[in-house]
């Protein structure tokens, strides 16, 4: 009997606590792509951290790289009556009907790190992404400065047709267009992977007289850059000196490579996509401030000078 009463009291207590928690806390659903890369894992970790700071109850769903799982997650978030949804879309198309359901239920949706293709932009509240064209432009400017505007460049492209590959290439070409002595002499796809970057770089080195004719390699992401560094080493050359290495993403291993003098710069793609989105959502909920349609995350250039310290700072995130 006594035990029963204690149980009942405890249950009531929990319910009361839950009640107050609900009143105070905002509930946000996060439909995440999965954990296909270290960057993605860092994005999820940062989202949890930001949610904790902003006292938001964040419900994360891991879609394991499948759109149907993300769609299911959004439906269930809507059914749970969340205050907002963060969506990191795995692909660009096919979101219209599920986003319409969310809009009908008056749940604001924020896109993280990727845009979507839709004829109706009112389907989502705002998109938080980096400016991938700017990233390419920044690293191009950096390379121009390093080489006094004179460089024969080989390029390791990302997956053919993917938007970061197209945009980073575009930005980089814009940057070097101002300098007639900077040219991309070879360009191939390394599929954003280490082994892809290494394999392509090996062949580039052979095709360019054992690497003597290459001044720098521009990789569309750090993983390919790291692969290229290994290929340069195996060809008996010094990465970072004989052949300069610049890339984009800012993953920890690239900071390590820069600290070792094997790479010359990376533009960080900030993993903090959820922070700006949550801030905009809280502003929208508390005083109805409409956020900007495209919230750009900052792109920052990092050089070997600060690499060691930056590596240490990032270690817990990745």
């Amino acid at each position: 009997m006594k035990l029963n009463r204690i149980a009942a009291v405890t249950a009531l207590g929990i319910m009361a606590a839950a009640g107050t928690a609900q009143a105070a806390e905002m509930v946000v659903g996060f439909a995440q792509v999965g954990s296909e890369s270290g960057w993605r894992a860092a994005e999820t970790k940062t989202a949890k951290l930001r949610a904790h700071q902003d006292k938001v109850n964040l419900r994360i769903s891991d879609a394991q790289q499948k759109q149907e799982n993300e769609i299911k997650a959004i439906r269930s978030f809507v059914a749970q009556g969340v205050d907002g949804i963060l969506l990191a879309p795995v692909v660009a198309t096919g979101w219209d009907s599920v986003l319409r359901e969310a809009r009908d239920a008056k749940v604001p949706v924020f896109l993280l790190d990727r845009q979507i293709d839709t004829s109706d932009p009112t389907l989502y509240t705002a998109a938080v992404t980096s400016d991938t064209v700017l990233e390419g432009h920044m690293i191009g400017d950096h390379l121009a400065k390093l080489t006094n505007n004179k460089c024969r460049i080989v390029e390791l492209q990302g997956t053919v047709g993917s938007s970061p590959a197209i945009n980073r290439k575009k930005g980089f070409e814009e940057a070097i267009a101002a300098h007639p002595d900077m040219k991309i002499v070879r360009s191939q796809s390394g599929d954003f992977t280490r082994s892809g970057g290494k394999t392509v770089m090996e062949s580039f080195i052979k095709a360019e007289d054992g690497g003597k004719n290459i001044c720098a390699v521009f990789a569309h992401n750090d993983d390919m850059g790291i692969g290229a560094i290994q290929a340069i080493k195996e060809a008996g050359l010094k990465p970072g000196k004989d052949i300069l290495v610049v890339s984009i993403d800012g993953v920890p291993d690239m900071f390590k490579a820069m600290a070792n003098g094997e790479a010359n710069g990376t533009v960080e793609l900030s993993p903090d996509m959820a922070g700006p989105a949550l801030k905009a959502l809280i502003a929208l909920k508390s005083n109805g401030t409409e956020p900007q349609k495209w919230i750009k995350t900052p792109s920052t250039l990092y050089t070997p000078a600060t690499a060691a310290a930056e590596y240490k700072r990032r270690a817990p995130l990745y």
């Binding site: 992977t193 280490r194 082994s195």
Partner: peptide, 16 residues
């Protein structure tokens, strides 16, 4: 061999 080649195990892309 593939892992040793890039000095890392890339579960998403190795042998893809």
């Amino acid at each position: 061999i593939a892992a040793a080649d890039i000095q890392g195990a890339d579960a998403n892309n190795a042998g893809l």
